[in-house]
Nucleic acid binder design. Structure first.
Length: 158
DNA sequence: GCCAACGTTGGC
DNA sequence: GCCAACGTTGGC
């Protein structure tokens, strides 16, 4: 099993939105970055666990857990001229962009903030914390995953 | 709203 | 294939 982190701006799509979707499942579309696409296409497998991360908001950080409910398939939003993420260069016969479906598992009991993550030596190599990182989807090692979850019940917030 | 970092585009 | 211009991301 693999572990991941996916970013979303809560003003656009938050963990509450996911929780209230039918089947608590949502296609994660609109990703227009090749590295992120390749991970969805090649590496994200059914049942993989995913941290839901809120970016660009008052409290930036990890807010919950979801799982991959459907493996990579063509991102139809690229074909829709009315869609914000329409890409005329994506040919339906040869789709350029890929999405996966994700399903809500649970909220964390508290937000594990970016600020807090930055204080942890254990996460020195975490992709999220690399300077200038802009990837909206990234792998998380099992060690990192377990460590981050261990912070959830900790009151040792800094 | 600012701005640094970074990916993409397109002229050459 | 280089690289400047441009657009986007995302923390602050």
């Amino acid at each position: 099993m693999n572990y991941w982190l996916m970013k979303s701006e809560p003003d656009t799509f938050s963990i509450d939105d996911l929780m209230h979707r039918p089947q608590q499942t949502e296609p994660w579309d609109g990703v227009r970055n090749y590295q992120a696409r390749n991970m969805m296409r090649d590496d994200m497998k059914l049942g993989d666990k995913v941290f839901f991360y809120h970016s660009n908001c008052a409290e930036v950080g990890i807010v919950g857990i979801m799982e991959v409910a459907k493996e990579g398939y063509p991102d139809g939003s690229a074909f829709n001229p009315d869609d914000k993420h329409f890409d005329p260069k994506s040919d339906p016969a040869k789709p350029r962009w890929i999405r996966v479906d994700v399903k809500y598992i649970r909220r964390l009991s508290r937000t594990i903030t970016l600020k807090e993550l930055k204080t942890k030596v254990e996460l020195a190599d975490f992709t999220l914390l690399r300077a200038g990182n802009r990837l909206s989807i990234m792998p998380v090692s099992k060690t990192q995953w377990d460590f981050i979850l261990s912070l959830e019940s900790s009151t040792n917030e800094r």
